[in-house]
Amino acid sequence: MNYMNLFRYWRTVLTVAEMSIRQQLNDGFILFAIVFQPMIIAVLGLFILRDKGSDYAMFVVVGSGLTGLWSSLLFVSGNSINVERWIGTLESLVGMPTPFDVIVFGKNLANVFQSLLSMVVSYILAAYLFGYTLSLTQPFLFVATLFLSMFAFICFGLTIAPIFVMYRSVQQWQNAMEFPVYILCGFLFPIALLPGWTTPVSYLLPPYWAALALHGTSTAMMPFEQIAFCWGMMILFSIVDLVIASQLFRVMLYKARVDATLDVD
């Protein structure tokens, strides 16, 4: 991916994002993934963790919001290219002068942005239905972490989408990838509960660093050094993801233009 394209085509990115949001908010499955599923997980989390005290309500709000972010990334961003293939617009998008990765970036931006709704819904649920008093321990750092997390999720999504298009055998595991990431990234419980051998796997997942920093800035007084380290890891993984994504898009566009096999089911 040519990173300068993101600045050069910023209007395209925003237009694609706007179009995607308008389109997707009419889709029942997407609404379920970003509103209802996180809401149900929040209800479960609030019931299950209620003996831990009211401090955990904010932990559940952030954690269930993260589940919405991941589910949206996996199912919506993951299929952001596939969707174009299914409706027959992929060739047109690949053939137009605007770089294709810019379009997919815009779609991922929309997905991740609208997924923040899951956190808002969980917050409303915890505050008004369960009556918890919710406050962020480090609000400014939380907001900064949220922006970085969004960027890390978008970049992660950029690697997933072309993989799902080119390697259908990987996409077949899509349904099975949802809950393992909830577990490995510590969205609703610390990964210290898991067997030790899973820890390195968690460290390799950008959502883990996002969850660690978001929980740290919302429910605990995480020292700034630790927050900065999580930010660093998210930036590092974002760069790595962008590099991987650029290679994947190169291969995918080659297949589309030279092999003409992209649309073959």
Binding site: L44, G45, I48, L49, D51, K52, S169, Q172, W173, Q174, N175, A176, E178, F179, P180, Y182, I183, L188, F189, P190, L193, L194
Partner: peptide
């Protein structure tokens, strides 16, 4: 579906879901 898809949707997904709530419950209790 290929067997792998069956495995992913009917075996691994539900198991992962079970482990998620079991760990959450373990954390709670």
């Amino acid at each position: 579906l290929r067997p792998v898809t069956y495995m992913a949707s009917k075996v691994l997904m539900p198991l992962a879901q079970m482990f998620f709530f079991a760990f959450l419950g373990s954390f709670a209790s």
